[in-house]
Nucleic acid binder design. Structure first.
Lengths: 348, 348
DNA sequence: ATGAAAGCGCTAACAC
DNA sequence: GTGTTAGCGCTTTCAT
């Protein structure tokens, strides 16, 4: 049994109500306040948050459910959320689903049991569906993966545009046999594939894409087969940082040079994409903004629950690096370790 | 106000005690149990965890305080902790300190207010000191950074041995002017530096090391200056994944080839270290085991608070890749994108 | 400015 | 097997 407000009251010779007032900066005479503070310090008292939450009926807690916090995209978004929550005096309850609907459901239950103030969620495809049928009991904002949405606030990337940007870029660099690997568990993966397919068709090219679990291993395995086969592409687009890593690993394993044998472009401007090989061309997402925007939508809704659902669509930024510039290989060949030569931004 | 156990009791025509018993799988007649379950479903009832925790006086919660969850080392450790907690039916409360003692103190306070069952903590140097003077009120396990420890259970890497392994390896490859960059905020960084210095001196070499904030930027900045100056090393050791990335970026920015102009070795076997340049020689830490071991120490202590503090020391594994093999550059020169040629493991 | 007391939702004696 | 009740630690009227 730990120190309670009652112990403090006793020690300070006041009632528990007074102690409570001191804690919440209520109206208390200066000298009593002093006595209470002294008692708190002497006893090492810390208020019990469970009790406080039970009494006040608000948890001051934001739930954050993502697929895998090891994915740098979600770590960054998570920090954005955390920073905003922290400024608002709220806790963040973070959960990983591993793209597993069972776990997702479990954590959703947990959020309810914690009576969270609000929820920020990157749902799997399966969950997205359920969310429409069984709406959540508390305010929620969808991030990264909103699908057609409708019921919820959301903040997402313009996935089709971004995919189109990559295709355009590869096309303009002379590539025609452009393949794609996309995450199969999220609306985001599907949208990027849609954008890719549409863009290819618009150019009279034949799209060739694979849907995979969004992991490094799956990407490496699939690409190893694909690159070894007869229909190997000359350029590849990967729909997130994990698959992108898988593509690079597969290319290296098979001894394919980048961009000589295979041009590579993808999503997520992680640190390593700048230093690997000739540098990788990627779509940079405004990761921190995604978290911040989500929190701001959430706070708006908390203050005004009647609001119509809003969808914030952010634009990616295409960072061109050597991995898609086979047409000018001379600039790269002379020095193995200065692949930054071709770095720059287009389509801001 | 949300649905409470009372509403369920009413709807099912039983007392709240009975509902509670149903929830905790207590002795209840089958048909009443059924009625209660029906009521729960009909009302969409979910128990209030704050109330339950208040009443039962245990939070079923493990606190986890790390410096930065974006650091893949901590993300991995975190998953180890989470998995173990999950199996034991416990929540994990995760907090990032950014190596900032203020935030660290704040989160420690939070943990107390949440009345966590136990705590797993990677403290800064400054906090490590305070922990000895003001012992925590609840069971805690130190990870990654235990210092001399004494008061707490801990699980750490054999940092001196690992640093020594890297020096040995570089030495045997013919390098003599071996520098090092180490994190300045953790006991771990200091230990690795100690090991490095001792090892260098034992060989009659002059250690040359820098203590830095453990970030990519700090590493890149420091190394950029160092490499451009007159006392540039011919090999460098980086004490964690972030500094290692900084080293690589600096080398690239200055046009230094790896390992031709600069050999590079470091800690943390992250995915990208395998694909960058000729592959980076690193010490692989048993990241998942660290989390698991920490949880198991914690559970032991919860069951038996009288136990003397235990320290678990794990060994790293040195994975040799091309970044330290300048002596055989021919094998690497022929193909820019197959740097795995020299991969292998020593010192298991 | 301060205290007395009710009650948030739940579990655990204790009765029957 | 089930109901009654006390109380976990806190905040918040309502008195004074």
């Amino acid at each position: 049994m730990s120190i309670s407000i009652k112990d403090v009251a006793e020690k300070a010779g006041v009632s528990v109500a007074t102690v409570s007032r001191v804690l919440s900066e209520g109206p208390v005479r200066a000298d009593t306040k002093e006595r209470v503070h002294a008692a708190i310090k002497a006893l090492g008292y810390r208020p019990n948050l469970s009790a406080r939450r039970l009494r006040t009926q608000h948890a001051q807690t934001i739930g954050l459910i993502v697929s895998d916090i090891r994915n740098p995209f979600f770590t960054a978004v998570g920090r954005g959320v955390e920073d905003a929550a922290y400024r608002a005096g709220m806790r963040v309850l973070l959960c990983n689903t591993d793209e597993n609907v069972e776990r997702e459901r479990m954590y959703l239950r947990l959020m309810q049991e914690e009576r969270v103030t609000g929820l920020i969620l990157a749902p799997t495809l399966a969950m997205l569906d359920q969310l429409q049928k069984n709406p959540l009991q508390f305010p929620a904002v969808l991030i990264d993966r909103a699908g057609a949405g409708g019921l919820y606030d959301s903040v997402v990337l313009d996935n089709r545009e971004a995919a189109n940007t990559l295709v355009e870029h590869l096309f303009s660099e002379g590539y025609r046999r452009i393949g794609g690997v996309f995450g199969q568990t999220s609306a985001t993966g599907l949208e990027r594939r849609d954008g890719y397919c549409a863009s290819m068709k618009a150019k009279g090219l034949k799209p060739d894409s694979r849907l995979l679990p969004p992991t490094v291993d799956a990407g490496e395995r699939e690409m190893s087969e694909w690159l070894a086969g007869p229909d190997a592409p000359e350029a590849i687009i990967a729909s997130n940082g994990l698959l992108l890593m898988g593509v690079v690993k597969a290319a290296q394993r098979l001894g394919r040079t980048i961009p000589g044998d295979l041009a590579v472009a993808g999503f997520d401007n992680e640190d390593w994409t700048e230093v690997v090989g000739p540098g990788l061309t990627v779509i940079e997402q405004p990761v921190h903004d995604i978290g911040r925007n989500a929190m701001s939508l959430l706070f708006d809704r908390l203050q005004n629950p009647g609001l119509a659902p809003r969808k914030v669509v952010l634009s990616g930024r295409c960072i061109v690096r050597g991995s898609t510039l086979a047409s000018k290989p001379a600039a790269l060949a002379e020095n193995r370790s200065t692949p930054l030569a071709a770095a720059g931004a287009m389509n801001p």
